[in-house]
Amino acid sequence: MMGAQEKKVMAEIDPKVLSHVTVVNNVWKVDAQDLYYRELNTLLRALDRNGAEKVELHSVFGQRYIGTDLKTNLNIDIFGTPGNDLAAFMNGPRITVHGNTQDCIANTMNEGKIVVHGRAGDIAGYGMRGGKVFIRDDIGARAGIHMKEYMDKKPYLVVGGTSMDFLGEYMAGGVLMVLGLNLKEGEKHRARFVGTGMHAGVIYVRGDVTHMGKEVKMVDVDKGDSIVIEGLVREFCGYFKADFDKVMSKKFMKIVPYSSRPYGRIYAY
């Protein structure tokens, strides 16, 4: 028997797309194979609008913008590899990716959560302003660029592996954390130009970095930092079944900007 909600959604969807959808125990299962991203996202919007709670997307092959323009607390499980701009401008849902993601994940994301059981490409969290992103493995270049915060609106990006260059570039707020769990004993994070142009927010690194931008310094963590770090690590370990004590056994450092006005002295007034 179809519920009222199901009937309503079904009525809104293109019959071609409908053949990719099954509902089992209130979980909307979508076979994304051969679905174009516009079809897939139109479907997700219809589900979002009609109060669906759980969606599983199977056989995802590079479809872009999944999670964009969704506003409720939809839970989306993605099996496969979502395309660029996963959760761009996202405003609420919770996405779990069972696989890797591509570039621009969480672009200007406002609220919600993403957990990636794999790696992420370049410019993850560009201009992110809220919500949380957890990535189990490595992350590409320019992660956290332009991340910003205002009052209680604060984004968190946690990376289990290591990152490529320009981590936290132009960062204007929020928390970026790189754990380096896949680094060998004594190996540094390979990222260079970490924090270039950074002028607010904080980057926590477990272990040492190779090279930092001239706008930032590395300092010891204080008590307040430890609380934030422990909380994030605990959450990380929960998602990825990592050993909390082992993660915490290595020293964390924090990277902060020298000034909130890095380029204040360029001009002749």
């Binding site: 332009h146 910003k148 915060e149 609106k153 142009g197 006005r261």
Partner: peptide
């Protein structure tokens, strides 16, 4: 600061390239 969503008193930097 509230409208731009950045901390009060920080430089608001819009570099030339859109990095995406």
């Amino acid at each position: 600061a509230r409208t731009r969503m950045i901390p009060i008193g920080t430089d608001a930097l819009s570099p030339a390239p859109q990095h995406d």
